[in-house]
Design a binder for these strands. Structure first.
Length: 578
RNA sequence: UGGGGCGUCGUCAAGCGGUAAGACACAGGAUUUUGGUUCCUGCAUUCGGAGGUUCGAAUCCUCCCGCCCCAGCCA
């Protein structure tokens, strides 16, 4: 620092702890306490345990960022584990998509992909051990009867008539369950805990059920499948997980998680910690609802750019880094919350503003003829790829007599504070010339079909030597040089902030969530845009070349998110005041 | 009328007995060849409510109120 002669300031305060691991939260606090107490030999091991029964969404991203983030922050590990104990709902397509999505989000499980189904044999052994300890029994009540015996929230349950079968009989029955001697649903294995427990989860929970279903990994080797509560805690213990992070709805299940581990000889006893799942305005994040949107055709598929799925957001053009930033900013706590989707969009704009090259795209073209521009002349104008970073270079864009500008940039009758084009008004064409509107051409229906302007040759590049100021700057494209493109404008899937609260959630769907523009024009440099590459169409928003349509004969761009639009706000306020 | 959890700005969220961080949103203003970006400024005398303890309470105690989860052979 140069000596400015300014008196020395008091010593600077100690630097804040490094922030690159993100803000703290109650889980980090807890882990730090464990570390200080020397628990788990200072080891931190987490896991992300999806059930492969659907595509991952932004809510899962919160959990992924949390679990992998914890491992990163404390020099630990995070496993990817598929909780695949219910073959009725799970399949290999989901397994594949989940791996793609976690990787795309930027996380690496190295060689630690696991499947609960890999533990089926071990789990069976644990079940046998429980039976031998007199802590589990085969129950031959029907599902309906089990429910009746369970009691209610306020009344205790009553013991199953099979509760006191001998260990030998239980062992025999359980062996035969595995051997396929019994029909589906005829018997289950239950833990013998307490039918009067205030926590319903502890009223002799089912551990195994008979299901003759083909499993995507174990094929037809098993006809009995373990339940979540039995599987999850043991899988955690087998993998040496230290902190088993899950969402709040599993809080009641923690008692059972602990019971199983306390009543079996296991390598370790991980700690289950619950946090609140993410809710986002104007969308739904329940797998059931998401599946419904796909199956009823309200969207084109799991990766429809309107979907809150990772694959949808990816196709929409959301950078993985922006999603990670979002997950960091929303924090981690236990209270139920509803995050404004505006925060997600903010993170996306913030990321794209810095990274996306600027480009010209006219969404709804309006023809403009420059009357005093020489017929047949073409000038190459210099456009900056990113005005804030001149080092990112520039490119040449052709200018000619016939151009397209945005329809929205012209008004026959200029409202108050209108900076854009109107009859007699002068504006700047970005990086080109000042032009003045001298004539409006309409068709028989009175629709404006073209504009005639004059240009000021002295303003080449967009600056006027006489210091004359112009308030509006418009983007444009040369009619003869631009490329036709299809542009898809996306908006919130639901018009209501909380679609869950809608009596009929289908009625809350936003009818304008997708608008397809088939006659847009983009600058020629976009011809070679890679699938998935992102640009800012100046003054419009951020767009991404569609992943699916990239191979087609025409250019297709998806609007990731629009730019903030303060003119829209001004106009809205004017209408309100009127 | 059972058990578990949660109530701090419009929305998230710090705070852990010493006198309410931050972000988004919103509202002003400055700069601007994107009405973008950036930059200033404003935005909870009060922490669900009522009592109490204390020199001092969002933080401790008591009672009350509200919201969420649990009665799958789902996860």
């Amino acid at each position: 620092m140069k000596n400015s002669g300014i008196p020395t300031l008091p010593a600077a305060p100690a630097p804040e702890p490094s922030t690159d691991s993100g803000p703290s939260n109650f889980i980090k606090t807890l882990i730090e306490e464990d570390l200080r107490a020397g628990k788990n030999d200072g080891r931190v091991a987490t896991r992300f345990p999806p059930e492969p029964n659907g595509y991952l969404h932004i809510g899962h991203a919160k959990s992924i960022c949390l679990n992998f983030g914890l491992a990163r922050d404390y020099n630990g590990t995070c496993n990817l584990r598929f909780d695949d104990t219910n073959p009725a709902k799970e399949n290999a397509e989901y397994v594949a998509s989940i791996q793609t999505d976690v990787r795309w989000l930027g996380f690496d499980w190295e060689d630690r992909v696991h499947f609960a189904s890999d533990y089926f044999e071990a789990l069976y052994g644990y079940a046998v051990a429980l039976i031998q300890a007199g802590k589990a029994y085969v129950c031959s009540l029907s599902a309906d009867q089990i429910r009746e015996y369970r009691g209610t929230l306020t009344e205790p349950g009553s013991p199953s008539p099979y509760r006191n079968r001998s260990i030998a009989e239980n062992l025999d029955l359980f062996t035969r369950m595995r051997a396929g001697e019994f029909a589906d649903g005829s018997h289950v294995l239950r833990a013998k805990i307490d039918m009067a427990a205030a926590n319903l989860v502890l009223r002799d929970p089912t551990l195994y059920r008979i299901r003759r279903l083909h499993h995507h990994r174990t094929a037809d080797r098993w006809c009995i499948y373990p339940m979540y509560d039995f599987t999850h805690c043991l899988s955690d213990a087998i993998e040496g997980i230290t902190h088993s992070v899950c969402t709040m709805e599993f809080e009641n299940n923690r008692a059972l998680y602990d019971w199983v581990l306390d009543n079996l000889e296991v390598p370790c006893h991980p700690q289950q910690i619950e946090f609140a799942r993410l809710n986002l305005t104007h969308t739904v994040l329940s797998k059931r609802k998401l599946i419904e949107l796909v199956e009823k055709g309200f969207v084109s598929g799991w990766d429809d750019p309107r979907m809150p799925t990772i694959s949808g957001l990816r196709r929409r053009g959301y950078p993985a880094e922006a999603i990670r930033t979002f997950c960091e900013r929303i924090g981690v706590a236990k209270r139920e919350s509803m995050v404004d989707i505006a925060l997600l969009e903010h993170c996306v704009r913030e990321n794209l503003n810095a990274s996306a090259p600027r480009v010209m795209g006219v969404l709804r073209p309006l023809k403009v003829v420059i009357d005093n521009y020489p017929e047949g002349q073409v000038e190459e104008m210099t456009f900056l790829n990113h005005p804030e970073y001149p080092e990112r270079g520039s490119r040449m864009v052709p200018f000619s007599k016939v151009l397209y500008i945005e329809r929205d940039d012209f008004r026959e009758e200029a409202p108050r504070k209108w900076f854009r084009l109107a009859p007699g008004r002068e504006v700047r064409l970005r990086y080109a010339y000042y032009v003045t509107c001298v004539k409006v051409v309409k068709d028989a229906a009175g629709e404006v079909v073209a504009l005639h302007c004059t240009y000021d040759p002295a303003t080449r590049g967009g600056d006027s030597p006489d210091g004359r100021k112009v308030k509006g700057t418009l983007h444009w494209v040369s009619a003869a040089h631009a490329l036709p493109a299809e542009v898809r404008l996306y908006d919130n899937l639901f018009s209501e902030a909380d679609p869950q609260a809608c009596a009929d959630f289908e009625a809350c769907l936003n009818p304008r969530s997708l608008e397809t523009l088939t006659d847009s024009r983009v600058e020629a440099s976009l011809a070679t845009a890679a699938a998935g590459s992102r640009y800012q169409f100046e003054r419009q928003g951020y767009f991404c070349r569609d992943l699916q349509a990239a191979g087609a004969d025409r250019l297709v761009f998806n609007r990731t998110v629009g730019l903030r639009d303060s003119w829209a706000k001004i106009e809205k306020a004017q209408q309100r005041d009127a």
